[in-house]
Amino acid sequence: MNRPLATRLSRLAQYGFLGALFLFIATPMLVIVVFSFDANRFPTIPWGGFSLEWHRAILDDPMIRDAFVNSVLVGLGTAIASTVLGFAAAYIDFRYRFQLKLPFVLLVAVPPAVPATILGMAMLAFLSRLGLFGRLETIMACHVAIATSFSMAIIRLRLNDLSRDLEPAAWNLGASPAAALIHVVLPFCKPALIASFFLSAAVSFDEFLIAWFVGGVHETLPVRILNLLQGQVNPKINAVGTVVLVVSVALVLLAQRFTGVRAGRRNPTS
């Protein structure tokens, strides 16, 4: 095949641009990963040789271990709570018509749009009055407020594909409204529920500012990283960063796997 030169050049330019863009986004992360395995104490070129020293060091650091456990607990709790709440909100929006529906949907959707600093400060002021300041549950509650709006969006999108006849058909075949919910609506939403679970976990795992405001002595992993940075330059940071990166990417990939964006896999329900 002999394409005209202009076409080939244009092709090349397109791929080149795409590659450059990708590098621009990925390089900082790649640098962290690469230097986390560097034997040098300070991330400098030339590379000092491969070493697992810093990864071993973070395993030996009890504060990093605690922060990791905290992050996992908060992430799990957030994932469960916001998926349940997100499903409830999406289902209410799907099934019922009522007067204050718009304010209701806005209320669920708006938290991620509020600047995190303001949200964090507001939460701090509010929760400390309630005497809930500085607990893991507090961080979790704040993360749920943000993640629920993502959960609702994902699940609501899936419910759009649920034929309006399917639930009444289940009632007609002897399923009580509760049984129809369990045996028809939930199984139909399963991919979206799983996606929502992983995405909420990722949102929580990455969130820094609010966790820093309301966590008190309880540090999540991102908060621990900041505190490490505020001390002297510590080679452990790259290793922690790598762990956070791997976990976050894994969670988002899992979420994508279940959002049903794959082509050619739509169920003919209507």
């Binding site: 034929s163 009632w171 399923a175 045996h183 199984p187 003919p268």
Partner: peptide, 27 residues
């Protein structure tokens, strides 16, 4: 509705897409 035992064949059929044929019939 669920206590009437007046099953209906729907214009849209309203089959459950996440169940197999046998599971649909057994629902």
């Amino acid at each position: 509705a669920f206590q009437r035992n007046t099953p209906m064949v729907w214009q849209s059929l309203a089959l459950f897409p996440f169940l197999t044929v046998a599971e649909n019939v057994a629902f």
